[in-house]
Computed example of a mutant assay.
Amino acid sequence: MKPGKPFAFGKRPNSYFFGLPGNPVSAIVTFMQLVCPALNYLSAQAKIKKTNKLSAITTTAIKKRPGRTDFQRAIATIDNNGVYTVSALPYQGSGVLTSMSKANCFIILPADCAGVAKGAQVDIEMFK
């Protein structure tokens, strides 16, 4: 996943540990995508289905190289017809913390995706 490496997970006799990346955005994305679901599972909340995933239409083209699932920070809005539209924030570097503070969702681009055109339908994950 991008951003989000390196990541470590381990189990000790009475505990688990999660090692997060050093870049701030990588650490946040990894925590949200891997650690939170693991903690929910370990605390027996896995049976509670909570989804924040929706479909949205992109307002701009998004560049991406195939290879890793990409979590682009973005701003989603609802238009007058009740359709979600989404705009990726311009600076997606893993050290750019302002992109997390301005975003209200992730655009989730699958590993095999080679970018999307303006007006394409994408999956988004709204922040709680």
Rank of each mutant, 00 (worst) to 15 (best):
58 T>F: 00
24 P>N: 03
104 N>W: 10
31 F>W: 07
47 K>T: 07
10 G>I: 09
126 M>L: 14
53 K>F: 12
116 V>Q: 04
75 I>A: 07
8 A>G: 14
35 V>Y: 13
37 P>L: 10
69 T>N: 05
25 V>R: 01
119 G>V: 04
84 Y>D: 04
118 K>N: 05
80 N>A: 07
12 R>C: 14
11 K>M: 14
6 P>M: 09
90 P>Y: 11
64 K>I: 04
125 E>D: 01
73 R>C: 02
68 R>P: 11
114 A>M: 10
73 R>K: 03
127 F>A: 02
85 T>F: 07
44 A>D: 14
125 E>I: 08
48 I>C: 05
79 D>E: 03
68 R>L: 14
92 Q>I: 11
48 I>G: 03
8 A>W: 11
1 M>K: 12
98 T>F: 08
100 M>E: 11
119 G>K: 01
40 N>C: 12
74 A>V: 00
17 F>V: 05
127 F>Y: 06
98 T>N: 12
82 G>I: 08
95 G>L: 15
46 A>R: 08
1 M>G: 12
8 A>E: 10
17 F>D: 04
14 N>S: 13
123 D>M: 10
43 S>D: 14
93 G>N: 10
45 Q>M: 10
126 M>K: 12
39 L>S: 05
25 V>L: 03
53 K>T: 15
124 I>K: 02
24 P>W: 04
61 A>E: 06
58 T>C: 04
5 K>N: 07
20 L>N: 04
71 F>K: 01
81 N>H: 15
75 I>M: 05
9 F>Y: 15
26 S>H: 02
37 P>A: 06
115 G>D: 03
33 Q>H: 14
105 C>M: 00
36 C>W: 11
128 K>G: 09
87 S>F: 08
101 S>I: 13
49 K>N: 09
64 K>A: 02
118 K>R: 05
125 E>G: 03
94 S>H: 04
1 M>Y: 13
38 A>M: 14
117 A>Q: 09
55 S>M: 08
40 N>L: 12
59 T>Q: 06
35 V>L: 04
113 C>P: 14
66 P>T: 05
67 G>Q: 04
13 P>H: 12
121 Q>E: 09
102 K>V: 13
29 V>H: 00
17 F>A: 06
20 L>M: 09
55 S>N: 10
85 T>A: 13
82 G>P: 13
125 E>Q: 05
47 K>H: 15
48 I>M: 06
28 I>L: 09
109 L>S: 02
